[in-house]
Amino acid sequence: MSVDDTDGASRAKSSSRVAPSFGAFVRKPAQPRVAEADTTASDASESGDAAQAWPEDAVEVGAIVDAYGLKGWVKIAAHANAGQGGDALVHTKRWWLVKGQDRKSAVVKQAKVHADHVVAQLAGVTDRDAALALRGTAVSVRRADFPALGADEFYWVDLVGLDVVNEAGIALGRVADLIDNGAHAVLRVEYPSVGKDGQPASGERLIPFVGVYVKTVDQAAKRIIVDWEADY
């Protein structure tokens, strides 16, 4: 089983071998792959729509950090590695943009992975100056627009908040976020504790998201079952 964070994602794929801007979706496939494709929004409006209702399932997956070229393209730093988690940015036809108090949607005419960023052409952004004006804009996409996953693959955003229990039924806490240590994802599980001063505090468990430890991910029950003792 493997954990596969839009940008920011993050997709996580649990494997028997050893992504709020929370690294939203990070894909960890068995074989590395780079998503690079153009998207055409022929069925969408040709301009950003500030009046469009903000979707309830919007997930922040990256931020516009610079202009790219002279024709209005923008460069996006994905919260997850662009070559792994950038596919939600690449394949969605509409982004949701926030800069300060300004919130609006934007049609994506083309998008692709370029080196360690995603670059995109947005409708209505036709020159470098307009692209530079978007620097610092947070980019969200609808969770419903994330690419479909394979068997035993999960987006980080779907794992955050799940309860974690061990095989003996002992509650270990709740997933606060995930960490990518390079080899695999790690669940950061928080649980109520007591500090040295006797006051309520939050404890932390770090559980590798690999098949030897993670036995079941039941999203319907909002629970992850692990082979992990409470005193580890």
Rank of each mutant, 00 (worst) to 15 (best):
A115M: 11
I64P: 00
W96E: 01
G169M: 04
A151D: 12
A67K: 01
K71N: 12
V18R: 14
L187D: 00
A24D: 09
Q84E: 15
V226G: 02
A30S: 15
L206M: 12
K28M: 12
V165K: 09
L159K: 02
S202I: 15
D218Y: 04
K215I: 06
H91P: 01
N81I: 13
P147K: 03
G124Y: 00
A80N: 13
D5Y: 10
G161E: 01
W156R: 06
V107C: 11
A24T: 13
A82K: 03
R223I: 02
F22W: 14
A51V: 08
K71I: 09
H79D: 13
L172F: 03
K196E: 13
G83M: 09
V108N: 00
T216V: 14
A78K: 01
K99T: 07
K196Y: 07
D158E: 08
V157P: 03
A133S: 05
D158I: 05
R142L: 03
N166A: 05
N181G: 08
A9K: 12
H184Y: 10
A130L: 08
R142A: 03
A82D: 02
L122V: 02
K13C: 13
L178Q: 00
T137L: 02
G85N: 05
I224C: 05
T126Q: 03
V74P: 00
Q31W: 13
G136Q: 04
A41H: 07
S45K: 07
R17T: 15
T216G: 04
E190F: 03
G198D: 02
G195L: 06
G23V: 14
S21G: 08
A80Y: 09
A51L: 07
P200R: 08
S14T: 13
V18Q: 10
T40K: 11
V165H: 08
D180A: 08
D38Q: 11
T92C: 05
K112H: 11
G195M: 05
I179P: 00
L159S: 05
V18L: 14
A53C: 03
I224H: 01
D180C: 01
I224V: 11
A138L: 12
I179E: 08
E56N: 06
D231A: 07
S16V: 15
V217K: 00
E56I: 02
A120F: 01
Q199G: 07
S193C: 05
A230L: 08
D218T: 07
V194M: 02
D180T: 06
E204Y: 13
D57N: 03
G136P: 00
A67Y: 00
G136R: 04
V119K: 02
E56W: 01
V59H: 00
A221M: 02
R188T: 08
E36S: 14
A138G: 07
S42N: 11
K99I: 06
D129T: 13
V26R: 10
K75L: 11
S47G: 10
K93W: 01
D127K: 02
A138M: 10
A78P: 09
D227M: 12
D116K: 15
L149S: 06
L172T: 05
G8Q: 08
D116S: 12
A78R: 03
R143D: 07
A44C: 11
H184A: 06
V164P: 00
K222P: 03
R128Y: 00
